[in-house]
Design a protein around this nucleic acid. Structure first.
Lengths: 332, 332
DNA sequence: TTGAAAGCGCTAACAC
DNA sequence: GTGTTAGCGCTTTCAA
């Protein structure tokens, strides 16, 4: 059988209770006693049972991470930020993916609840079948959304200003004289798509120019989409001198299509991505984009979550991380 | 207070035990009883406490995943495979990263043990300070290594044949007439580096050609390394007509350097990567590489781990996933 | 500063 | 089929 507090108590002559407190560094236990107990514990090869501790204390020191797709380079960096920060605060993370399925997201949250997580960080999906307000709103544990927001739950979000970020990209292009800008927007139900699109419209408005609707194409956000949509736009003879993309992945597909169609970037077409994935600087040409501090987004989400776990009277308030434009070879 | 089995028992008139068994689908409980209990449970909004169940049953249905860096696209796909497979078998994963630090890896394993994980899947680090045989060898729970092996623990590994994979790349290049092949090897302590290097040597031997040692350069495996090493090789006037890389990340850096130095790929230099990252097909030019089934690697690791958890008498045996050459634009 | 007792919510072992 | 009893290993509460 495995070693328990009882065994240490027996060996040292102290009570189980004293052993427990000594091992947790309770200051009311004398230094001498603590030393004796610690030594005995390591001699016996004691491995604390965190499950038992959780059960009794009803704090699991675990947080659930609801990710849409942890293999997506955007999310994987956010998750890395969450994980690093979690370690710092002494938490472990349970990770699972929804693949943008409402049912999975709901199942996951329930599962996390069963496992008594102390809090949840979610990159929520946007399935129309899922009532997020219902799923999260009635949660009795703290929760934070990272990078995406949900109407009515913005207080629980850590965000970056997508309207501002995308607007500055488009204003920059308009000011350089571009008039036909192909806009590859993201999936319709994602908050970022909505905001970035708003940014595009604001830019056109601020310059008193009209944005033609057939220059806006929605995509899921994968590389293949960028590739296919650009091909399609060229095939139908759409004229454009610049392309702004919902994310870097789309932009990578765009670059490939343009290259195959003998259009050179940036001289024939300028291309902007969004997110500043690690890879983007190594594309050929390297990608101009909007930097989103992904790691930090995760870290701030975790930090905020911990604050709420430790003080449940803390009012929720939206937090922001800042973005910035990055100019590389895909623009002049 | 939250709802427990007791409350359901009270409401239905059955004992706590019967409720517990009904909810777990014990076949000895009559269908009628089970129905009554299930209904009561959902009416009360019962949330099972998995922590308490784990404690009693001493099975947590949780596995610990020791990753070197979950933001690395190779690992993130492996982890995705682990996660999908875990879901399939009813397990959850605790994820944490070592950043190739021996101390962190040891701490992590200890932490997982405290949390009573049912098993561990590791992408072990290769810090010289870490005695893996010591750390894992004395583990009382099942463990599997994915994609990397450790001497003396090969039975616990799910691998791909790196010797074979790399040899076929180099043989292909030699057969096409290349004589000066720059080899960007991986970090010295990683098993894959060792095997892929062996594959390179075997290829040269099989063609009765000599491999000059100054054509072998070790790198950590990041994009920047590929970039810097290629620049450096060019600067010192090394002649080469092909470059084989330890992984696709290095190859991406290589492509960038070659482009900046006005060398065209593949006409001046042919480039091979390894791993077949998702991105690699969208590089400019697209990357020839060796496909490693990353998702499957993770899934097989999980599947194997579960088999060992469920049958602790099952003997460990190395498993393999297969690789294949992929020819794209970076080679002729 | 330490100890004794109670019990977290559940499952397992055994009874009937 | 169902109930009774006894803990899992720890922390909490209360007492000294």
């Amino acid at each position: 059988m495995s070693i328990g507090l009882k065994d240490i108590a027996q060996k040292t002559g102290f009570s189980v209770n004293t052993v427990s407190r000594a091992l947790r560094g309770d200051s009311r236990i004398s230094a001498g006693t603590t030393a004796i107990i610690s030594r005995a514990a390591s001699e016996l090869g004691y491995i604390p049972n965190a499950i038992a501790a959780s059960m009794r204390s009803s704090r699991s020191k675990t947080i659930g991470v609801v990710s849409a797709d942890s293999a997506n380079p955007f999310f994987s960096e956010v998750i890395r930020g969450i994980e690093e920060s979690a370690r710092h605060f002494g938490y472990q993370i349970l990770l699972a993916n929804t693949e943008e399925s409402a049912k999975r997201e709901a199942d996951l949250v329930r599962m996390f609840l069963c496992r008594q997580v102390d809090g949840i960080i979610a990159m929520p999906t946007y399935d129309k079948d899922l009532d997020h307000a219902d799923l999260y709103g009635r949660l009795s544990i703290p929760f934070i959304f990272a990078g995406r927001y949900l109407d009515g739950l913005k207080d629980h979000c850590v965000l970056h200003d997508d309207v501002e970020g995308q607007r500055s990209v488009v204003e920059h292009l308009l000011d350089k004289g571009h008039r036909n800008i192909l806009c590859l927007a993201g999936p319709k139900k994602v908050s970022n798509t909505h905001d970035r699109l708003a940014g595009i419209r604001e830019a056109f408005e601020s310059r008193h120019l009209a944005l033609e609707e057939n220059y806006i194409v929605h995509a899921m956000g994968h590389i293949e989409d960028g590739y296919a949509i650009t091909n399609h736009a060229l095939n139908r003879g759409l004229e454009f001198s610049a392309i702004v993309c919902f994310n870097d992945m789309l932009a990578m597909g765009v670059l490939k299509s343009l290259h195959e169609n003998n259009l050179s970037v940036p001289s024939d077409v300028e291309v902007f991505g969004y997110d500043n994935l690690y890879m983007s600087q190594f594309m050929q040409p390297s990608l101009s984009t909007v930097d989103v501090p992904k790691f930090r987004l995760g870290a701030v989400a975790m930090e905020t979550l911990v604050a709420h776990i430790e003080d449940d009277s803390l009012p929720y308030a939206q937090r922001n991380v800042s973005t910035r434009l990055i100019f590389r070879e895909s623009t002049r």
